[in-house]
């Protein structure tokens, strides 16, 4: 008799029933919402008549220049933002890994961004980068005595695509920094410090120790950060919503399609494409990390 069949025969319902509520919940969210989303994406509405199934909505969205632009911007947002989050988190984790006075205090200080609601952070950035009267403009045009004038005229930060999305990214990275830092710090703390001592006695300088000991051993926690952060980056809504109204990312495009254009089929299609992007890039990242791990351990 096959092993699988044995397992089926041994299966007893009373052993799994405590999992039932969680299973129902999962099915409810994943299957029903997912199916509803796909259903909406594959429907097309014209003159009050709904056609299903059809790819016309998807085709319309994909050929829409605003969508294409948002897709490109979002991809750039992810490609620049994720490594930035990793780098900032890694730097802070390495700083906090050192022994110094008030270390615990500094660590709690770094957790503050988590306690501030994203909306508040975004609004603060909105005020800071306001035009023409924000603090940043005041600072750079020499309105504050302690800082020299760098610009002649104030800059309309939120009116420029690069700056608007850049500021959103700064907000996002600032807000997410504690989580990345904590994941990476626990990864660092899991490494036996004697490994660094051993490497030093074998002649390894700081660079060698980082490249050949720390980083390979940090791959699991770095993968976790990249995975979690890149997904968050794709989905980002609140910062671009407040700070880059004119330059939507996919997350904000869904909102504007639904609310401003009343196009729920189109909004669903964008959402479905967003999910697809997340799945594809996640798989891509995982395979890159696996490749790197093999590369780095080679001596």
């Amino acid at each position: 008799m096959s092993e699988a069949w044995q397992k089926v025969k041994r299966f007893k319902i009373h052993e799994v029933w405590p999992l039932l509520p969680a299973a129902v919940y999962l099915v409810g969210f994943l299957v029903i919402v997912g199916a509803y989303l796909v259903g909406l994406s594959l429907s097309f509405e014209k003159n009050g008549v709904t056609v299903f199934p059809t790819l016309r909505t998807v085709a319309a969205v994909v050929s829409n220049t605003e969508f294409r632009h948002a897709l490109l911007d979002t991809a750039l947002f992810v490609i620049v933002g994720t490594p930035l989050e990793l780098a900032v988190g890694l730097f802070l984790a390495l700083v906090l890994y050192q022994q110094f006075r008030f270390r615990n205090f500094v660590r709690s200080l770094f957790l503050v961004p988590l306690a501030v609601p994203a909306l508040v952070t975004a609004t603060l950035l909105f005020i800071l980068f306001d035009y023409p009267g924000g603090h940043v403009n005041f600072l750079l045009t020499g309105k504050y005595a302690f800082f020299p004038a760098i610009l002649h005229a104030p800059v309309n930060w939120r009116g420029s695509e690069v700056f608007a999305l850049g500021i959103s990214m700064i907000g996002k990275v600032w807000r997410d920094m504690p989580i990345s830092m904590l994941i990476l710090l626990s990864g660092l703390n899991a490494i036996d410090p004697e490994l660094f001592d051993a490497a030093r006695t074998m002649g390894a300088g700081l660079r060698t120790r980082i490249w050949r000991v720390v980083l390979p051993l940090m791959i699991p926690s770095m993968s976790a950060v990249i995975l979690l952060r890149s997904i968050e980056m794709w989905k980002e809504f609140i910062f671009p919503f407040i700070l880059a109204g004119k330059y939507p990312l996919l997350g904000t495009l869904i909102e504007s399609m639904y609310n401003d254009w009343g196009n729920s089929n189109g909004a669903s299609a964008v959402a479905a494409i967003l999910v697809l992007c997340i799945v594809v890039t996640t798989l891509l990242f995982l395979s890159i990390m696996e490749f790197l791990r093999r590369k780095l351990v080679r001596t």
Binding site: D192, E194, L195, A198, T201, M202, V213, L217, T299
Partner: peptide, 14 residues
């Protein structure tokens, strides 16, 4: 100088 540690400190990924 070479040192052998109490925990051996072998690199686990190598």
């Amino acid at each position: 100088l070479a040192m052998v540690f109490q925990s051996y400190a072998l690199f686990p990924h190598m």
